[in-house]
């Protein structure tokens, strides 16, 4: 595979490959000298049509740790503002001889369309509309596997997808507007976990019958059985505000509060893809609790994105399918 557009394209084996290679890069991250020459001479461009802090910084850090050169195209100060089309912007990037482009776009499917226009460049989806955010899904799965492996006293790399079998993962919050929810659901399902979506009816996608998940509106009933609660941000910029009667009511029914944290079974974890809005979907005390993996997620994001870049840009014709032979 040459591109990373959707978790769907990776499958179970591909997800495990990325997580395993990311373990090697996590070791690089623990060194005093955190840079390796694996992508020396490659050029990676970030093309973000939507604002982002952690994803862009994470990808750029990952590329630099691999010794790639990084071009950061800021849409606000580019020719896009003069009316240049996405296709022309991409063709310009192709003409410059860039090896990979990391795209975030408000429209679902923009990275897929970009990959059809670009023959020789790896396209990485860094979030497209309500569709997917595959690298986030991968790093969340990586982080959770690491935590569960530590609990079990084993090395994550030796476990493959074993630790996900039979686990119950509850994704709670603004699922309708969340590309993270889609990528996480695909990743966790592929790895063998049971996924439960928990949200008010207005924040659920209109049809989830093909997702292979359970749907509930009762978070409290899930707490005792859940092995992982994945809390999502209420996406005000995508119109979530109109979907709930009030923030207070949303908070009362669907937020991860300290009371709910106490109701979790021992060993259960909480994740949040960030940015967190404390006091809305997650209580400040929960965010700072050791069971909440949010800072680990950010740290692991770099290693996982290093793995994605490394596999896409050094795999020759085989790319992601070429690993683990």
């Amino acid at each position: 595979m040459k591109n990373l557009l959707s978790i769907h394209d990776l499958g179970k084996a591909g997800i495990i490959d990325v997580m395993n290679v990311a373990e090697s890069f996590a070791e690089v991250e623990r060194r005093t000298m955190k840079k390796v020459p694996a992508l020396k001479g490659k050029v990676v461009a970030t093309l973000f049509f939507e604002e982002s802090t952690r994803t862009r910084l994470s990808f750029e850090t990952a590329a630099k740790r691999l010794s790639a050169d990084v071009l950061s195209l800021s849409v606000a100060s580019s020719s896009v503002k003069k009316g240049e089309s996405l296709k022309d912007t991409l063709k310009t990037i192709e003409s410059l001889g860039i090896d990979a482009v990391i795209i975030r776009h408000r429209s679902s499917g923009a990275p897929l369309q970009a990959s059809r226009w670009l023959d020789d460049i790896a396209v990485i989806n860094a979030g497209d509309g309500w569709h997917e955010h595959p690298s986030q899904g991968l790093l969340d799965a990586f982080t959770v596997r690491q935590a569960w492996a530590e609990d079990a006293g084993v090395k994550p790399i030796d476990t493959g997808a074993e630790l996900f079998a039979g686990k119950r993962i509850v994704i709670v919050g603004d699922i309708a507007h969340s590309r993270v929810a889609r990528s996480e659901t695909l990743a966790y399902k592929a790895l063998g976990a049971d996924v439960v979506l928990c949200a008010p009816q207005t924040l659920l996608p209109s049809d989830t019958s093909s997702w292979g998940v359970e749907v509930t509106h009762d978070l409290d009933a899930e707490l005792e059985q859940a092995d992982l609660i994945s809390v999502l941000r209420l996406q005000a910029e995508r119109g979530s505000g109109e979907c709930v009667p009030s923030l207070r009511e949303f908070n009362a029914d669907f937020a991860m509060t300290t009371t709910r944290l106490r109701a979790l079974k021992p060993g259960a974890r909480v994740t949040h893809p960030g940015p967190m809005v404390r006091g809305v979907e997650i209580a400040s005390e929960v965010a700072d609790d050791p069971r909440c993996l949010v800072t680990t997620q950010v740290t692991n994001g770099v290693a996982v994105r290093m793995a994605v870049l490394y596999l896409l840009l050094t795999g020759g014709n085989q790319g992601l399918e070429g690993v683990g032979q």
Partner: peptide, 26 residues
Amino acid sequence: LDVAFYRDDLALRPVVPEAATDIAVD
């Protein structure tokens, strides 16, 4: 020591993630 990330023929070799680098001493 695993030298995979330092090789000049990366594209020719499969990644072996099980091969870890572990150097605990400075």
